[in-house]
């Protein structure tokens, strides 16, 4: 089973940050405090939406037909995500 990268704290549900990175080849360990990439700060549903959008060559109409919903529904999801990313203040 492929382990899933946790992005939220299991205790307080706040966003986690990266504090340690390691090289599997030479065992070098880098320590520090790094924020998670924007993509990982999004919910799994939003991440899946971005992947689908990318795979559909950025066509909302194509996505809508794949998901079995209408164009305005997909467009609204995209607008909500754009607003969410703007609110993350990156």
């Amino acid at each position: 089973m492929k382990a899933k990268l946790p992005t939220l704290c299991p205790s307080c549900e706040e966003l986690l940050s990266v504090s340690q990175l390691s090289c599997e080849h030479c065992q070098t360990i880098v320590q520090g405090t790094y924020p998670l990439p924007v993509f990982l700060e999004l919910s799994p549903k939003e991440q899946e939406f971005i992947l689908r959008f990318f795979l559909a060559s950025g066509s909302l109409k194509e996505m809508a037909s794949q998901l079995g919903v209408s164009y305005p529904t997909v467009r609204n999801q995209l607008d909500d995500m754009i607003q969410h990313i703007k609110d993350l203040d990156i």
């Binding site: 809508a64 037909s65 079995g68 919903v69 209408s70 164009y71 305005p72 529904t73």
Partner: peptide, 9 residues
Amino acid sequence: LNPIEFFGE
């Protein structure tokens, strides 16, 4: 109740 959400125009 919301056909616009599911059906193409």
